[in-house]
Structure formats: structure tokens, C-alpha cells
Amino acid sequence: MCVLRVVPNLTAADMSAAVDEHAGVLGLWPVMDHGWIVTLADGEGHQLSVMTPDASGPVNPDVSVFVNDVREAFERARRMGVEIVHPLTEEPWGVTRFFCRSADGRVINVGMHTGAR
């Protein structure tokens, strides 16, 4: 299992204003828009996500970490006794993911692109 990408997640009350602000200030543009989460990027692969309440999770994660084997990451978290905040779930938008809470209280969305159902 290896990490492929790490994306910070910012919660916004006004999605449109937040997207416009980060696009204008940072020169990023939307590369994914599900309505409740928009990921902005540049041509170098740097990314930032802005979100309103998560579509299926109980809380908004602080960061998303994409891996090549989410089931292995989930089993590692379980073996270590890490708190699972959102169970391993195949989401309808083509991501399999789970949320865990780090020792410092941060919520990590660990996921893998698996294709839309």
C-alpha cells in the first residue's frame, strides 16, 4: 500500500465564494465538482478541496489521503486500534473510503478511486 495523493479539505459556508477566492488568490481551477465538494488544482498537481457538509460521512475530514489499496489501509487502521469515524464505504461517485481519527483528533479521509457505480 502506498500514498498517491494528499489533499487538504477546507469547510466553507459559501461554496461559490470559497471557490472564487481560492481560484483568484492561488490561481487554482476546479477539476472536480460534486456540489458539496469542489477540488481545485493547478497544472503541477497541487490540489485543495473546499466542501460543505460531507455527502455521507458524519463529519468533514481535515485531509484526504488517496492510496493504491484502501482495504489494506483500513485493515492497518483496525489492527492499530485507530478510531474509525466512517466505515469502509463504496461511494456512488466512484471512491471507496473510510474516515479515521488521528491521535491529535484530526479526521483523515482515506480513499481510493474505484470507478463510478
Results as ranks from 00 to 15, higher is better:
residue 12 A to I: 15
residue 25 V to Y: 13
residue 90 E to R: 00
residue 102 S to T: 07
residue 42 D to M: 00
residue 90 E to A: 02
residue 113 H to K: 07
residue 113 H to W: 06
residue 73 A to W: 08
residue 103 A to P: 07
residue 67 V to H: 02
residue 60 N to M: 14
residue 27 G to W: 09
residue 61 P to G: 10
residue 90 E to L: 00
residue 47 Q to E: 12
residue 20 D to E: 13
residue 96 T to S: 00
residue 25 V to I: 15
residue 22 H to A: 14
residue 109 N to Y: 02
residue 19 V to C: 09
residue 81 G to E: 12
residue 62 D to P: 11
residue 64 S to Y: 08
residue 116 A to R: 13
residue 18 A to K: 11
residue 56 S to L: 11
residue 13 A to K: 15
residue 70 V to S: 00
residue 11 T to D: 09
residue 105 G to Q: 09
residue 28 L to G: 12
residue 99 F to I: 07
residue 30 P to C: 10
residue 35 G to N: 14
residue 3 V to T: 11
residue 34 H to I: 10
residue 85 V to K: 06
residue 55 A to K: 09
residue 77 A to L: 07
residue 50 V to R: 01
residue 63 V to E: 02
residue 16 S to V: 08
residue 71 R to I: 13
residue 98 F to W: 09
residue 25 V to E: 12
residue 46 H to A: 13
residue 73 A to H: 03
residue 31 V to K: 10
residue 95 V to Q: 11
residue 92 P to I: 01
residue 108 I to Q: 00
residue 15 M to V: 15
residue 56 S to Q: 14
residue 19 V to K: 07
residue 110 V to I: 03
residue 32 M to E: 09
residue 89 T to W: 11
residue 51 M to G: 09
residue 39 T to C: 07
residue 23 A to C: 14
residue 117 R to M: 01
residue 48 L to G: 07
residue 101 R to F: 01
residue 95 V to W: 03
residue 101 R to M: 08
residue 74 F to G: 02
residue 40 L to S: 14
residue 16 S to F: 04
residue 32 M to Q: 13
residue 25 V to N: 12
residue 83 E to G: 07
residue 71 R to T: 13
residue 14 D to G: 15
residue 97 R to K: 10
residue 52 T to V: 13
residue 95 V to N: 11
residue 69 D to A: 06
residue 101 R to T: 01
residue 31 V to Q: 11
residue 54 D to P: 00
residue 52 T to L: 12
residue 67 V to F: 04
residue 61 P to F: 06
residue 97 R to F: 03
residue 40 L to C: 05
residue 47 Q to F: 00
residue 40 L to P: 06
residue 56 S to E: 14
residue 26 L to N: 14
residue 70 V to M: 04
residue 19 V to T: 12
residue 33 D to W: 12
residue 111 G to L: 02
residue 57 G to R: 01
residue 73 A to P: 05
residue 78 R to E: 05
residue 116 A to I: 07
residue 93 W to M: 02
residue 32 M to I: 07
residue 37 I to W: 08
residue 102 S to W: 01
residue 60 N to K: 03
residue 112 M to C: 10
residue 34 H to K: 13
residue 68 N to H: 00
residue 1 M to K: 07
residue 6 V to F: 11
residue 53 P to A: 11
residue 7 V to W: 07
residue 14 D to W: 12
residue 50 V to I: 14
residue 49 S to Q: 11
residue 39 T to N: 11
residue 51 M to D: 13
residue 37 I to K: 07
residue 72 E to M: 06
residue 31 V to M: 10
residue 58 P to C: 09
residue 117 R to D: 02
residue 44 E to I: 00
residue 21 E to N: 13
residue 84 I to R: 04
residue 20 D to A: 15
residue 14 D to R: 15
residue 7 V to I: 14
residue 37 I to V: 15
residue 39 T to L: 05
residue 49 S to F: 15
residue 28 L to N: 08
residue 88 L to W: 03
residue 57 G to C: 00
residue 32 M to S: 12
residue 24 G to I: 10
residue 5 R to D: 05
residue 50 V to N: 02
residue 44 E to P: 04
residue 60 N to P: 03
residue 80 M to T: 02
residue 114 T to D: 06
residue 77 A to H: 03
residue 18 A to H: 01
residue 15 M to C: 15
residue 28 L to H: 12
residue 113 H to A: 09
residue 97 R to P: 01
residue 86 H to Y: 13
residue 105 G to M: 04
